[in-house]
Design a protein around this nucleic acid. Sequence first.
DNA 1: GTGAAAGCGCTAACAA
DNA 2: TTGTTAGCGCTTTCAC
Lengths: 335, 335
Amino acid sequence: MRKPITISDIAIKLNISKSTVSRALKDHPDVNPATKKKVKALAEALDYEPNLLAASLAKKQSSLIGVILPEFNRAFFSNALEGIQEVARRNGYSVIICQSNEDFELEVLNTRMLASNKVAGILMSLTLQTADFRHLERLQEKEIPFVLFDRVAEQIDCPKVTVDDFQGAYQITQHLISKGYQNIAHLSGPLNLSICKNRYNGFMAALSDAGRDIAKAQVYECEHLKEDAYASAKKLLQLGVPRPDAIFCVSDYVAFEAMRCIQDLGLRIPEDVALVGFTNDPATEYVTPRLTTMEQPARKIGETACEMLVKSLKEESDEHPHVILPTTFIERSSS
Amino acid sequence: MRKPITISDIAIKLNISKSTVSRALKDHPDVNPATKKKVKALAEALDYEPNLLAASLAKKQSSLIGVILPEFNRAFFSNALEGIQEVARRNGYSVIICQSNEDFELEVLNTRMLASNKVAGILMSLTLQTADFRHLERLQEKEIPFVLFDRVAEQIDCPKVTVDDFQGAYQITQHLISKGYQNIAHLSGPLNLSICKNRYNGFMAALSDAGRDIAKAQVYECEHLKEDAYASAKKLLQLGVPRPDAIFCVSDYVAFEAMRCIQDLGLRIPEDVALVGFTNDPATEYVTPRLTTMEQPARKIGETACEMLVKSLKEESDEHPHVILPTTFIERSSS
DNA sequence: GTGAAAGCGCTAACAA
DNA sequence: TTGTTAGCGCTTTCAC
């Protein structure tokens, strides 16, 4: 890389001091408009690029926000990332991202790496495995602000953003009940995750409030959401007594797999089995136009999380709100 | 943020010099194993985090790789990003990403921002709009290495990674011909993009080589891939003379939209209209198990691009290879 | 309104 | 093997 232009270069050419150049470049109030103009003109002409590394080092304040996601290739996370990116950019931050790949070790390494890069703060959604929170506690000790979203740890006291999982699950289950379905099953994920747990609770509460016999509800936990969904759906449909006439799926790919299974078994949706689920994937409308869903405002979640981080970056406030966003019920009737 | 531990802190506590600490920490060969051990132990105990900003500044060499993508929320790009991330991590780099959002202005701003962050190099896939390449030329002037992938600019002399669009299109068109389809149409994108152009050419070449009358081939250019696809498909199917019995789609969402249109018109796939296309979206298998596709090795593309960048970072070589990866033909028969 | 000087945390000659 | 010193490019007192 060729030696880049620095403020010293400009200062020398203009026969003024570095400090004046520095001030002029950031529109400091008390600097002569004339010199300010000269400086800016020369900077432009020389195609000067400020060295953000040096600036961060001097200010002890970086303009980078770190993000750790379990994976990129899922609509929810990539949408959330868009929201994050957007808010960060508007506030003068850039985003440095890492993928934990649903691997706890990597998640820990990533927090270290971001800390080393002296990011201003961190946004993260935990892996399915994360049960040990010492890496988060270490961030707190170092006073690196962070916000958790979607997959959050209840044990940790920090700002959080999630959707109203209980309410969403309750509502969509109620929808099935009102449609007259008698044997509603639930394909869930690991129940140690609060997100799955809350949906499970919402499901159960709706059944219970409708006077259904909770004990009879058939629920399968899919350890690895996508991988286990097909098999679980199959068990449900082949061995379930009675066979469910409706299935509530905890997330989009679980629903897609369930759909595939239903079709492979020669059953029809929704005549034989109705299918509903939480979802974010834009492909949903293609996959099955008949899938009634609770849509999660993925992008909004990302925006909100980033806004909270930015806020805590400026204000040093010690509040740790847990923002709960509503989901959107979308009924797609049979075609 | 509380004042973090620095190498000076360690040096003072151990009554040795900063440089020794620095050397010990990076396993410099000529440093006494004993002191090395002491230093590492204390660093560990104090939970020391090296300040990568300072290191980069001093070394004039950053450990960040910049990535600019048109959007995250598309399977192709998020898969490519995974590959990039993986290779970068393995080589000790972190990834700082920006979304150009298919907006040329943003793309330009992003290159400036990355340059300001003094990234070691840049990976990018251009927006659909990009027709002015001065921002790339500026990177070349500043000698910031970059690699283009997928959406590349033929005018710019730099390393590039794409798939074999011509060959893929040729092969999938040939497939349709061999199946006996007579009126094969093509839903394309902006033909000023080499990626679309090459697929178009492959399509035409296959028809021509099979002795078909090229002049009769019906082709629609969708300016905005996803947005215009439905309308174009509709025109093709309602107004096309003769009505196509097969459609080759330039990308996944174009194919999804075409499928939706075909179904809305009450036609069947593939009995009335066969559908084939380039694709990357894992949802394809759900959307239509009958869609025969050319799969692009998105992840591999990302990996390759990043490897090329890393290589040019170490070796200062002045080669600018254009790597062309093969696509994979996947025939999905009617269910 | 401008300049001089110190320093952010680290690296890398050059000495010792 | 270790210490000394001089930066990297920028910000920021504190003088003038």
